[in-house]
Structure formats: structure tokens, C-alpha cells
Amino acid sequence: MLSFNILGGLEVRIDGVECTPTAPKVRSVLALLLLRSNHTVSQESIFDWLWRGQAPRSAATTTQTYIYQLRALFERESAGSEQLLITRPTGYTLTIEDGQLDTIVFARMCAEGRALLERNKPGEASLKLAGALSLWRGRPLADICLDLEASPDIAHLEELHLRALELRIEADFRLGNQRELIAELRGLVVAHPMNEWFHARLISALNHCGRRAEALQAYHNLRQVLSAELGLDPTPEVQNLQRQVLTGNDVRLLAAA
């Protein structure tokens, strides 16, 4: 079976054996087609992706060559793949079946995990979401030399990744695994200093484990970051967490929406 992975470096595999193209521009075209799999990608979109608004006069012919090379790769490596990459009147469509692309598998597992959490099955939800997160090998398309910062497709995938993390942490909180989460949450607040949800979970986990001084320090760190970077205070919900830590009351957790 031909499969594709983009949650990390670009990978093309046939029955587990890697056959990823090596030519940089061919890899870049494939990356865009995978990001927008099962949707037609216009030639103009490919031009912008490859040449950032400075396409040469030969762009159309060159793009056709890259498409030919991809189609040849698919047909060589996987019998019956002639309908995988389809030429449309306005562009090209890479048709992907369920299970062939890691982003599709990831999204499906996240939806299943969220449904389990909504049915109050945190144990099963945690396992499902952890499985989804294990598909991530690094930043999407980390080895493609393009301005990925400007890509809304990459931003969307990274937002889904954060959401999956929040849901899995929520499931683990419901299981009473606060102590085990502290180290992970410390790392997350460093990686995402403006994410108040992660900070709130760290405060809650520390307080739950009887580490009130550290919980208050975690709140202080958040307040300092928000003040220095944005001139803001923590949200009323997070301020309420601090008051509850100070008074020794049970901390009301901010649930993942």
C-alpha cells in the first residue's frame, strides 16, 4: 500500500519501504498536493508555492514535468495507482484514501478521542488521543525548504495538534494523573508561553499535588509574561485559580472546550 507522511519530514512509503522523491522541487509539489489532498490544486497555487510570486516564464512547462515525475514514481512503486494523481482542467488532484495520509488518520483519531471524552470515557480517550499524537514526528513538512510560516495549511495542522494535546491532558486530568502531567505541562508553558490553558492546567496540577508554592509561582510566571509581552493580566478564570490556591479551596479546572 502506498502511504504518505507529512507530520514531520515528508515520507512516501510502499508497504513500509521508503521511496520518497529526492528532487527538492518535486518534493515541494508533492507536499502541496498532500496538504490539499482530495482537492484540486490550481497551477497558480503551485506557482506561488514554488516561486513565491516570481514564477518564471517556463513555470507551466516545469510544473508539468514535476507532475510527470510524481506520476511516474507512483506508477513505478505501486501497481494500480494511475488514478492517484489526476489532471483537472484547472489543476491537479491527489486522491487519497482513508489510511494513506497521516494527517487524515490523525484527524480521525482526534475526533474519536473527543467523542470518547464527551461520553465520559477518559481512559479510552487518553489512549486514542495519545495514539494520534504519536503520529507527529516534528513540525509538518519540516524538511521542505519553503516559507512554511506563511502557509495557512501548516498553521491549521499545528492548531489541530495543540487541540489534541489539550484534549489528552483533559482526559488525563479526569483520570487523576495530575502528578504525571507536571513535567509535560512545564515544558508546554515554555513552548507556548501565551497559552493560558496550559498555564492553568499546570497551576491546577501543582495545587492538586500539594505543591501550593510552586502553583503560585506558576501563576506569577504567567502574569509576568502577559504583562511584559502584551500589557495584559491573566483571564478572570485563571485569577480565580490563584485565589483558590491561596485559600486552600479545591481548584476549579478550565475544561477543554
Rank of each mutant, 00 (worst) to 15 (best):
L157H: 00
D233M: 01
A256N: 04
R137N: 15
V225E: 01
A111T: 11
R243Q: 09
Q242A: 14
Q178R: 06
N195T: 03
T235D: 03
R137F: 11
D233Q: 02
L117F: 11
W197C: 02
A215I: 12
G9T: 03
I144W: 05
V41S: 04
C19E: 13
V251T: 03
I104Q: 07
I169K: 06
I96H: 01
D15E: 13
E18G: 11
S3M: 09
T40L: 02
D102K: 03
H199D: 03
R57P: 06
I86P: 04
T93N: 07
A150P: 00
E158A: 01
D153H: 05
T62V: 11
A155S: 00
L188A: 05
T20G: 13
G8Q: 03
R114E: 14
P56T: 00
Q224Y: 10
S204M: 07
I182N: 04
F198L: 05
T90S: 12
W136Y: 11
V238E: 01
D172N: 12
S126P: 03
L84A: 13
L33K: 04
L141M: 12
R57M: 10
L148Y: 02
F198C: 01
T65D: 10
M109G: 02
V225Y: 04
C110K: 11
A60H: 09
R88Q: 14
L206M: 02
L206R: 00
W197N: 02
S3L: 06
T103A: 08
Q54H: 04
P24C: 11
G231Q: 01
Y219L: 12
R163C: 02
L254C: 02
Y68Q: 11
R186I: 07
S37N: 14
Q217P: 06
R139I: 08
A107W: 00
Q242M: 15
W197S: 05
P89W: 13
E184F: 10
S126E: 10
L167W: 15
P140F: 07
G176V: 01
L34K: 08
G113E: 01
K25M: 13
L10E: 07
R174W: 13
S227E: 08
A55T: 00
S81A: 15
G9Q: 04
A23N: 11
R179C: 06
R119S: 15
N177S: 14
N195S: 05
R114T: 10
Q224S: 12
A111Y: 06
H220F: 15
V251W: 00
V26H: 09
F74P: 05
A115D: 10
M194C: 02
D233T: 00
G248F: 08
V245N: 04
R212P: 10
P236D: 00
E18Y: 07
